[in-house]
Design a binder for these strands. Sequence first.
DNA 1: TTATAATAGTTAAACCTTTAACTATTATAA
DNA 2: TTATAATAGTTAAAGGTTTAACTATTATAA
Lengths: 144, 144
Amino acid sequence: MAEQTRTFIQNLLMVQSSFRQAIQRNLKKNNIDLTFEMLQIMVHLWKKDGINQQEIATKTFKDKASLTYLINNLTTRGLVFRQEDPIDRRNNNIYLTELGSEYGRKVKPMLQEIYKMASEKIDSSNFDVCINYLHDLDNAFKDI
Amino acid sequence: MAEQTRTFIQNLLMVQSSFRQAIQRNLKKNNIDLTFEMLQIMVHLWKKDGINQQEIATKTFKDKASLTYLINNLTTRGLVFRQEDPIDRRNNNIYLTELGSEYGRKVKPMLQEIYKMASEKIDSSNFDVCINYLHDLDNAFKDI
DNA sequence: TTATAATAGTTAAACCTTTAACTATTATAA
DNA sequence: TTATAATAGTTAAAGGTTTAACTATTATAA
């Protein structure tokens, strides 16, 4: 029923906002000079660097033009650098600097703690149902 | 468990992105010159105008500074106007213009159709569980 | 092989968000 | 009553997003 979907989206945007604020608040509290968006990029690079901008864009649901901007900003801060892929010269592979890796050792535990604290207030038995709900919505919107 | 929450947030951001794109796509298809953000404001005004900027900000999970910007933009397009509240002169009450109301008669059915189409692909029996999941997450992040 | 299409990235312009400092107004407590 | 706090809104600066047009490179099909 349409009104349920409307309500769900409303609440989804609410969570997106409170999540964002929680992240920003904790970055600040820990004196970490990163924006929410930069962090989104870095999280993926801490898992695996040397991936190109388009891959990062896809993983973070961002536009490739946003990636140009964000990678510029992260480069300026000395956290990452671009390296042209010798096999396919259209690609810029993005690598962490030593400083970029170091940030990870500080920030990843902070993130883990945030997720852990949130998890303790959630009834995890509903996880699968809720993830499916999100997937169904995502597929629906992609076709509309 | 923390990894579930991490996954949920990831998927939530995915849905937020596909929802946004669906809205933008359909606005464009129907030649409606509104951004996603302007639409968020207008949706609330079509329900009830004469509310102040802070109320709109709260309802849309936006900052009051964003509202100043967005109301300026909507005013420029001739869709709304500000009116100082005579009872509490700190407030700007926002009213629809005739053009703003007219937009609603075109855009509201489009939105309703989007929600309706999405709803048809969702198992609505899980709605309550999923809304509660969102509320729990929201409360958790507000405390972190 | 060569023309064409697809892909990765950049740029510029317009738009939106966030933060902090600021003004104006109203509420509250000593 | 008056000083103080709280609330609504604005502003400026820095940052992020979106779109379309663009370049460079690689893949594909005639």
